[in-house]
Every structure is written in C-alpha cells, then in structure tokens.
Amino acid sequence: MKNKSVFYFLILTISVFAFVVKGLVYASLGSFIPLILATGVFALFVIFRTKPKVLSRILFWWAIGMILWSLIRFLIGGINNFVKPLTENHLHEQLGIQGTIISLLFFVIGILLLRKKNRWHALSFYYEKLQSS
C-alpha cells in the first residue's frame, strides 16, 4: 500500500508540475492563462490538504481534466493524420509521434489518478502520515 501511495503522489506531482512548467514557459512569452490555471490547481491542493473529501473531489476533477486534455489532443492528432491534414504545421509537429506519446502518458496518469481505489488508498496513507507526525 505504501508503494502504491508513493507512486500515486509521484504521478500527481508530475502532472501538476508539468503544467506549472508549461505555465512558466508561456508566461515568459506573454501568455498567462496556463500559469494561472496550473498555479490555481496547485493552490487548491495546498489549501484543502487537510480536508479529505474536498481533496478527493479536486483529485477527481484534475484527473478528468488530464483525460480530457489527452483526448482532445488525440482527436486533433487523429483528424490531422487520418481524416484531413491540418494546414498548421506547428500543430502537426506537436501532435506527431512525440506528442502522441505525451498524450498517452497523461491519459494513463489521468486514469490512474481517477481510480477511486487508488485515490482512497493514497489519501488514507497521506492522512495516517499526517496524524502520526
């Protein structure tokens, strides 16, 4: 259970920080919406860290967000490769093989974060640690 919980928090951290890094990159280019969104999610995790039910809800919606994000990328990439090529070469490059691997990675992360059993195991482990310390 310990290993599974550590893994759960590891992939959660990867998913949030990937978007924080993306937000920082875009902020340096003058676009602030990705950073606002990523730091907003991060702030929610911090603010509600002592409330298991709320934290579980946030985890649920974050996981749904990950899955939707991946599916939209799969959809655009699929249309580009199999239905009608996009005129935007930029999108074609980003949603090629590497982009599909990244989408797949985040899709799997989303599924793992979403599973109720995983969430409750991880949260129980977290609160046990919190109380014992």
Partner: peptide, 12 residues
Amino acid sequence: RNSNPLVDLLVG
C-alpha cells in the same frame, strides 16, 4: 505563443 490562449493549454 499561440494566437489563442486556449491553444496554449493544449500544445507548446
């Protein structure tokens, strides 16, 4: 950056 901020969320 992309011309639409929502596209920024999806791709680099």
